[in-house]
Each structure stands twice: as structure tokens, then as C-alpha cells.
Write a protein that binds this DNA or RNA. Sequence first.
DNA 1: GTGGTCTAGACCACG
DNA 2: GTGGTCTAGACCACA
Lengths: 120, 120, 120, 120
Amino acid sequence: MIHIDFRDPRPIYEQVYDALRNLIVSGVLAPGEKLPSVRELASTLAINPNTIQRAYRELESDGYLCSVPGKGSFASGSDAARSAHRRELLDRFCALAEELRAAGVSDENMIRAIRGGERT
Amino acid sequence: MIHIDFRDPRPIYEQVYDALRNLIVSGVLAPGEKLPSVRELASTLAINPNTIQRAYRELESDGYLCSVPGKGSFASGSDAARSAHRRELLDRFCALAEELRAAGVSDENMIRAIRGGERT
Amino acid sequence: MIHIDFRDPRPIYEQVYDALRNLIVSGVLAPGEKLPSVRELASTLAINPNTIQRAYRELESDGYLCSVPGKGSFASGSDAARSAHRRELLDRFCALAEELRAAGVSDENMIRAIRGGERT
Amino acid sequence: MIHIDFRDPRPIYEQVYDALRNLIVSGVLAPGEKLPSVRELASTLAINPNTIQRAYRELESDGYLCSVPGKGSFASGSDAARSAHRRELLDRFCALAEELRAAGVSDENMIRAIRGGERT
DNA sequence: GTGGTCTAGACCACG
DNA sequence: GTGGTCTAGACCACA
């Protein structure tokens, strides 16, 4: 379900965060669907429960899921969360486009890169 | 010449690295031009010389810089370095475009974001 | 009759407690009126009976409720309970007003917030 | 400087959070001023460093301070943070006023409570 | 069983 | 020295 790369310099809790967020915003985890419990996911991924919990906590504070003590954690899947995610990606996208322009890449080349994926 | 933001979560050596690399690939520092010495730049920016040293070291190992022991460091305006930089930016750009597409953003909206900066 | 929000971070027994207490102090449940049984309310709300039990227990110990073994639970519309509730709310209200004052909000702005709801 | 009540049901990290936030928004900790290090505050309060760090992390994510790896943590003191705090207090204030009104307390009585502090 | 807090102690990157 | 991540294991309240 989720793959963690221990050689990735990014912290583990962040990898878990991203993976779960993607599952939620993409709809693989339907709104209201129950996520694996902290302990369960921890033992599945062979990761300390505290690390998983941190990912869950941040997902909750960002509105991607909802933890109910004693019951479990549930995907939020709110449209607000989804559009917030889009917005964040677009911001990074524009910043990168700015850098590319500064590096001398024309808008046409960027558009070609988007369309074709031919990165020559 | 360079501005360091202590509030930026990125490590300082990385900020210095980016700033100098941008000056080099943009041509502000002409090929072969001498850069300030490590100690000089360190005192100018009020930063630990070790930090500057690391930025210089990585710039050299990435081919943006050429250090001559006893003489100083010189900008290497090689086209290879410049195009490598562009290549790296374009790769990240395409990856982001892929993510945006997965998030339901159309190519047209991305192009509009690049062009107008109107992030609707 | 009662609405439980599973997204609410507050424990469920507390939500039930508050909801019933409000019904009692507002007079919707007249003094002496019989409340639904624990099991009945639990099945209505699809909640564990233990959770309802706890809410009832605390309501009784706070004087809002009167349980008669074998007969049921009855609203205790005593003025004492009502004014105790008001007293508790007023205490929290004054404490908050104190904090607001410390944060630089004038009494006039607080009064305006109470009256108009315009939170400028 | 800070007092922690171990008998308080609220989590310790939250008590630390509130205490530091108050010091910052009240200006006791001037903008840019260095806060005690995580380890230092932890040993001063006889609390585990992880607990302090969580408070610091949340303060940073809420914009009240700025942590620089290797250098320390610094009060932000931005006006934005201060007004965000006021806004949050005012929201709770209005919600409480609503509850009081539902409990049968007149606006005049609330205003009297604010002004005089006579909670009779 | 669940989520949540806390501790103790280790390790890392940064300056 | 600093902040940051991670682990291991304990305890609590809630359902």
C-alpha cells in the first residue's frame, strides 16, 4: 500500500504523510473511509508508532484526515483539502517556472516539456 | 551581493550555494572571474567560514566553480554546467507537472499559470 | 434530538453531556420529564452504551439529572443547577475577557463583538 | 519564567506552548530575541526535551517563532501572529457569549461582567 | 482495541 | 553547541 525508502534523505514521517495524502486526495481512500490504525500501519511498515502518529497528526492538522480517539482515523476527502493541495502544487510550479525563465528557458520550451515529456 | 535569510528553513550553506550558482549561470559572474575568498565572504555575511567553505566545496564538485589553491576561486562559466542546471530544473518541472496532472489540473491551466501568473 | 459530530475532537460522552445539559437548562426537557433510557439513546445515536452511561452518570453527579433505579432518568429542572451553569459560563467569560484585555482589545471592542458579532 | 502544572489535565507541551506564546505576543520576548534552547528549557523545567521540542515545533508552524537548525529559536513577534492570536480569542469569546445568551444571560449582564469583574 | 502524551536515550546535520 | 528525527517502551483516556 505504501512504500518507504529508508535511504531517502527526507524524514520518514514526511514520506508517510505524502503517501497517505496522495491516497486521500486521489480518492483511493474514499471520504470517511477508515485508515489503518497507528499501531497497525507501524507494524506493517516496520516503523515506530510514534513516527506514524506524527504523520497522522500533521495530516489531521492539515485537514486531510480526522482522528477520533478510541475509534480510529478517517479520511476527510474534503474538496477544500483537495483544492488546497492543488494550490500548493501550483505555487511550487510557478516558482519553478520563474527559476527556469531566469535560467534562460523559454516559455515555449516549458510548455513542450509539459506536453511531450521529452526532456531533451 | 548575496542575501541570507535566517528565517529560511533551508541550511545556510545551501542558500549560499544557490545564490552563487545563480550568479554564475546567469553570467553576472563572468567565466573566469574571481570570487571573494572564503574568509572575506564569511566576514561580509557574518557567517561561520566553515559554512562558506562547504558551499564553495559543493559548488566546485558540481562544476560551477574552480578553486586554485593559493590563488582563489573562479567562476567556471562552462556551458556544460549551465545546461546541467537547466536539465535538473526541467526534470523537477516535469515531475511537478505530472503531479499536477494527477491532481486534476489540465495542461491549459498549467500553461496559463506559467504565462500569466494568475493561479486560479 | 441530539447531534453527535465524530469529527469533533471532544470525546463523545462530553458531547452527549453538553447536549443533554443544554436541553435541560433551556427547559426543552421540562423538570421531571423522563429521558430516554441509556440503551435506547445508545441505539438511536449508534453509540456504545458505556459512553451514554458515562454522560448520564456525570449529568447526575452535576445535579442536572436524577436517576431512579428501575424507573429511568428524569430531568432535574432545579434553579440551582441552572444558575450553577450560568455561574460557570460567566467565570470562563470573565477569564477570556481578561486575556483579551491583555492582548490589547478594548472593552468597547468586546462589547461590539457581543452585540453585533462583527469581529473587527 | 514559565510555570508548569503537572496536575493540570492539559498536556505539558500545550502549557509550554501557551506560556511562550503569551511571552511573545505580549512583547516580553522582543521580536528576534533568542529563546532558550530546547535542551536548556527542558532541563530548567525538568521536562523531556522531546516535549519542549513539540511545543517549539507547533509555535513555529503557527508563526510565533522561528527555529534555525544549529543556531537556535527566535521570537517572531510579527504583527500578523499577534492579530491572529487576538482573532482566535475573539472567536472563542463570541462563542461563549452565544452560550451565555442561550443560558438566559442578558447582554447587559455580560457587559457588567466585563467591566466590573463582579461575578455575582 | 483506539488515539494521545510522555520519557529516555540515541543519532544526524548544521554552525 | 544547536534543532531535528527516530526508536523503544510506558501510561492514560476513550469506546
